[in-house]
Design a protein around this nucleic acid. Sequence first.
DNA 1: CTAGGACTTCAAGTACACTTTAGGTCAAGA
DNA 2: TCTTGACCTAAAGTGTACTTGAAGTCCTAG
Lengths: 146, 146
Amino acid sequence: MTIGELTRRTGLSASAIRYYEVERLIPPPRRRSGRRDFDSGAMSQLVVVQLARDSGFSIAEVRSLVTEFGRERWRKLAQRKLGEIRSASRRLRVMTNLLEKLLDCECPDIEFCGRAISRSRSGSSPKTRSGASSRARPPLSLRPKV
Amino acid sequence: MTIGELTRRTGLSASAIRYYEVERLIPPPRRRSGRRDFDSGAMSQLVVVQLARDSGFSIAEVRSLVTEFGRERWRKLAQRKLGEIRSASRRLRVMTNLLEKLLDCECPDIEFCGRAISRSRSGSSPKTRSGASSRARPPLSLRPKV
DNA sequence: CTAGGACTTCAAGTACACTTTAGGTCAAGA
DNA sequence: TCTTGACCTAAAGTGTACTTGAAGTCCTAG
């Protein structure tokens, strides 16, 4: 499979795929007269890489995910990210509710909604938890698509 | 409320809060001898801004969200983002399942999981949907926290 | 034989969202 | 009075994740 075909199948750009190879998120494919020739295994791995990126893994984290599979460091990372993904899901759910309410005109204004959100949060988490909660934030970044 | 107190309450940095003001995500607060003095309304709005950022709104989108509230352009944006957030949630769910399976050693390797994901996707979406699916991707970025 | 299109490498460029730096102001406590 | 710490502005710097550009290679069709 050429890189062009892989772009069609995955929606990734050719430059992104080459970049992922350089960064060792996917193994270097064999070459046919200089050109990359991917097999279906490469595509399967690329799908996982893509999902992980979409779920907020950084390039370095995806590298760990695929190169240290099964090892102890890997388990630590996977567990940490699982926690991050769960809290991200919670926040997405809150935002979904907010947008639905705003679209249904159930909220008079933005500040009103902010107060509602603050209330629901302070009910479920310790409120005196002061400062430094977002140090060095690994940004989970999700594109649309699918 | 000083900016310092606001950082403690929201977990945002002072520079981020000033930046949001410059970018008009929050209204300029009144000043006491040059220093910002926020009221609780500002804090409520900041909570919404924070949630929207965490849910993948860009700075420009958050600006639209708060400055064009209720207008038609605003509804369009809100509906589009609602769709993006839903598909992001789906992808997070797939990643959660994947990580849980991998941690339980239910998957022999990464490629195996990739094939499983491809199968579940091609079952639910038209497979001949070729190319150009991720043009100009607005990256939804989520930090941990909460 | 030549043209076109898809591919190659390597280096440099870009966008976004802040952060950091430099230099200054202000109020309160020792 | 001096110092400390929190605050101020404006401009420049940073990291991440690619993208773009330049210059060249390879295969196929005409």
